[in-house]
Design a protein around this nucleic acid. Sequence first.
DNA 1: AGCTGCATCGACAGACGCTG
DNA 2: CAGCGTCTGTCGATGCAGCT
Length: 784
Amino acid sequence: MRKKQRNFIKVLAVPMKESHVIKGYSVYVPYVWKHFIEQHKHYKVPVVSLHDTMQMLLMDLLFVNNRAFFNPNEPWLFSRHPVDLDLLKHIIESWYIVHFHKPLPPDVLSGMEMKEEERVANIVINEQGTADLSDGFAYQYVPKIISVKLNKNLFIPSLGKHLHFVDVCVPLSQGAEWISWPPEQVTIRKKREYFSYKVTFKMQTIPFESVPYLYIYVSAVRWMAHKASLRETGATVYLQGTYPWISGIADVAPMVKASVKKRNGHLRWKHQANDVLQEMGYGRLLPEIEAVFDNPRLHLEGEKNHEFNTFIPYGTHLWGTHPIGAGAGFQERIEIAKAIAQQLSNVDPFPVCQRIQSSSKNRKKTQLKLPPAMTIEIWYSDAEWLAKVKETLFQSLDIEAPNEQNVYAYGSSKIIVKERAITESLDIESNEANGKKLLVQRIGKMLNNDASPAFCFFELKDKDEFRHSIDPKDFIRHMFVNHNKWTQFIRPIDPAEDDTTSENRFKRAVEDLFRQAGVVSRRGQAVLERHENTAFIGLYNIQRNKRTSQKQIDYPIMVQVDANEIKMALPHKGWMPYHEGLLMLAKESDRLPEQEVNTFLCGALQQVQADHIVLFAEAQNIRGSTKWFQNKHIHTSVHPFALFRNVSIVRLRDEEGGETPEWTVFDSIDEYSEMTEIASSFPTGVFQFNDRVFFNIGSKPKGVGQGINPKKTKLQQPNKNLPRSTAVELTIPICAEGQSPETLALLTYELRNQTSLQYDDMDTLMPLPLHLAQKAKEYAKMVL
DNA sequence: AGCTGCATCGACAGACGCTG
DNA sequence: CAGCGTCTGTCGATGCAGCT
């Protein structure tokens, strides 16, 4: 049976058409206090710690302004209700004593005042019709203020009940957050487990949209019910309880996020929060955090030993896995978002995006396009491993039987295979004084001044197994690059590994080696040949910091794919074949001054011979070095490459940092009018948002999201992983003559869809030239 | 104009859990 | 051998205001 195609998606984003006027109460930094803090420069007054403490103790605060000490026109604290100044002073004084072991001098806080105030967040629209907010703080406090006003008692039809949400006081930068409380309970393996639904709100602008949008994300928080131990040095927990100084609070108390730190193997509250409370005269209000981690279930079951219950959300920074699967159910996710959106607007405010269809069909090529000549060296220590690599290699090249000369033909390409034994031990204790030098010597000895270009497989243990010795991977790659050799590592044969996993491992390794030689999938080659006179170019800024590289690297590269060749351009070096570019990258990558970036890009573009050039760049990567790609600067006619008439530009923005919205799917516009969304799992395709912005949903690896019934709620399938398929936002500001944003959007998807040799059965997140550019990063200079 | 201290922000890393 | 999605924490770059 043919699967019915879903033709519409609805984006879970609410347009914020009106400017917001917020009435509240503000406290400004008193002059004496500001002066006092400044006098204490030598102390490094940890203002952040004070702010975190205040946010934790004064739940009513809408925000704490961390910059207030430097900006006398901005309020320090902003609250919906009048602030109890005596209490505030008491908190500050107690905090000071705990941190400095002496009392705050008298009168430092005497000038503290509270006043009623309005803040205005106006929507300003630039000449391109793109919205921005007049008040820079608005991106942070508007979501908070909107969320505070909403009714949090929501009826969720698929659950057949109401969910009650509580506000979570989070630091200003994290937007706004709700948690459903009491938590949901499920029984897994005869044990009771807990989770809550979580809603987060974020303000986002979208190019060429005259209004900002409030993105609504619905996810799940899985609470730890059994002993929790930290893998990392810190964690965030949720606190819920009654402060002694607050009376008559709502039926369900709000929550606060608080930080926990691990020092010398022991857990403690960050900012000495409990000591501050004790200093205030309330005793140790917060529970001993180590006891909470030992038995979190006590707190979830509401046993009242202390004023505050503490809940530990599961994260990968904790050891072990959680019996409940990640993610919220598809049904509830939509229903929760809808129940919220309906309060913000009378009509259904979610924008609807229609699918755009491509009519073109590709015929898969039968052969891969390889370089004319290729030498492949296999560096082995285990004969069985060597045989396995050869077998996999021959399979990929359709070679029936090995011959004695080890020279093979594939299409018009000549392939030479060489076997080379790893004769030196590369396992050198990390405490060996000259360890690194020794390593370089030994690798050099094996290479024996042979600088003939070759693609090399190298048998090497996993990183984990070099825990007590130096990991030679970077040294090998570096030395090999200097001898014109590309490296592909493959782990030794593991007897515990099952056959299919092992086969896949070797197959993917062979494919990744071919990728380094600039080989694309059969389907990818067909796509490129259909667009014969078009050059597809990915712009990518390689960034590495000092932790992973000798020095900081900030280096733009370009990767061009067309029907004939895959090329790379480097600053001051121009275009060269992709594989040569990789070697060059290892030697040349550096910091390129910002003002030289555009010279490089334009210079390289000038040498491109094609009827049509399509440039791809990832927003989060490129907008730092080329400001034009930022939302507020992106433009439909003025652009950095205006010299070239035949250029089209596609900017991609992915999910990182919550920059793309969630969505839901449905079949037809009739269903839309009846408001009957179908919570489905994973459609793919391109959906149009406005004239120049699209959302592209790519396919997932097979099996991700399988075995999930989208009609069932999380409560009905608690142990299933319910992934959130995200969309990539495509912005197409510039179209060459004869091109339209629609055709370019479809083209972009075509270049994501099964074009990578290694993933020829699924989509890559980025289109082929960008994908290859990102992959080149591994060759940028590294730590030695 | 250069320095200092604090704040924000983006990139990155590492982990799990699912997958091919 | 990899991918994506999701989470957390760390680091370095950058930006700002005030001081010298």
